[in-house]
């Protein structure tokens, strides 16, 4: 069978296919409504739902809930009749499968292990994702776009969230499920998995690019400058920019909110940066210390 068909029809992967279909559908629906409302706002008309009255819960809402519940039940029953949940061989601690994959919704995090050490990819970044999500309502002080789909009124919020949601979360999951084979090597869906394949990728550290041993003192200092420079620069640069371009906003935003938002933002951006460094420049670590490597 065509390896691509084989991969997407594996029982557990059907869920990912369903996810991609559902997410695409609802994304289009959300943005379509957002653009529609943007147009209405532009000409000063009320947005969808602004002048709505009340209806009785019984029966209109109760009825639609019942219909949705039945539809979900039918869908899951159909899925369960057509596809059987797999059961692999009994657990065997001496036989490590290759690749050993985490459950699909954690594959984005497993993918990060290519770019970051486990303490970052597996512990610090996931914790910051949770903290960051919870912080959203407190750092987004834009009063507009509350209770209706819109895009123009909250571009920065939507673009940032979408980048995290679609690229850093969903795309990495899809890559982890469909494009990663033995040894966590990249396989195109039409390629056979080859367990004997070894790819020798000579990675280097940041300072070695400049001929400095990354484990020497000068290498350590260079790494420290680059990493801390990124963190401090990332903290200060937007401040300077906002101070010049949007001083009233900065004032209203406040210092604490600024620091929290910027920390979360530069952490998030460190992921694509590290990916490019690794994939394009084959750089593994930027800063090697006796305690941890970044």
């Amino acid at each position: 069978m065509n390896p691509f068909i084989e991969i997407i029809t594996q029982p557990d992967n059907i869920a990912i296919v369903i996810m991609v279909i559902l997410v695409s559908f609802f994304t289009v629906w959300a943005f379509q409504q957002a653009f529609q409302n943007d147009k209405l706002i532009a000409v000063g008309q009320p947005v969808d739902g602004e002048n709505e009255g009340l209806v009785d819960t019984f029966k209109p809402l109760v009825r639609i809930e019942l219909i949705i519940a039945l539809a979900v039940m039918v869908f899951l029953t159909f899925w369960s009749i057509v596809v059987d949940a797999p059961l692999e061989e009994i657990a065997n601690p001496t036989l490590t499968p290759n690749p050993a994959k985490a459950p699909w919704y954690f594959l984005g995090l497993q993918e990060l292990l290519v770019y970051f050490d486990p303490w970052l990819a597996g512990v610090v970044l996931p914790s910051l994702i949770i903290v960051g999500l919870m912080a959203i309502p407190y750092i987004d002080i834009n009063p507009k776009g509350n209770g209706y789909y819109s895009f123009e009124e909250r571009k920065f919020a939507i673009i940032t969230f979408s980048f995290g949601f679609f690229i850093l979360w969903l795309l990495l999951i899809v890559i982890g499920v469909f494009f990663r084979g033995p040894g966590w090597l990249w396989y195109w869906p039409w390629q056979e998995w080859d367990h004997a394949r070894v790819v020798f990728e000579p990675t280097r550290d940041f300072s070695t690019v400049f001929g400095i041993d990354s484990r020497s003192l000068p290498g350590f200092i260079l790494g420290a400058i680059v990493v801390n420079g990124y963190l401090i620069g990332g903290m200060i640069a937007p401040y300077k920019y906002l101070k010049k371009k949007m001083p009233e906003f900065l004032k209203e935003f406040g210092m604490i909110r600024y620091i929290v938002t910027t920390s979360l933002f530069i952490t998030m951006m460190s992921i694509p940066i590290k990916m490019v460094l690794r994939l394009v420049f084959l750089i593994k670590y930027i800063w090697i210390t006796p305690w941890f490597n970044v």
């Binding site: 797999p86 059961l87 692999e88 061989e89 009994i90 657990a91 065997n92 601690p93 036989l95 490590t96 499968p97 050993a100 994959k101 985490a102 459950p103 954690f106 995090l109 497993q110 050490d117 486990p118 303490w119 990819a121 597996g122 512990v123």
Partner: peptide, 17 residues
């Protein structure tokens, strides 16, 4: 089974980090 055993092994190894 093998699937669950190794998924949990990979997942909980993160705890060690």
């Amino acid at each position: 089974d093998q699937l669950g055993f190794w998924a949990i092994t990979v997942g909980t190894n993160m705890g060690a980090a």
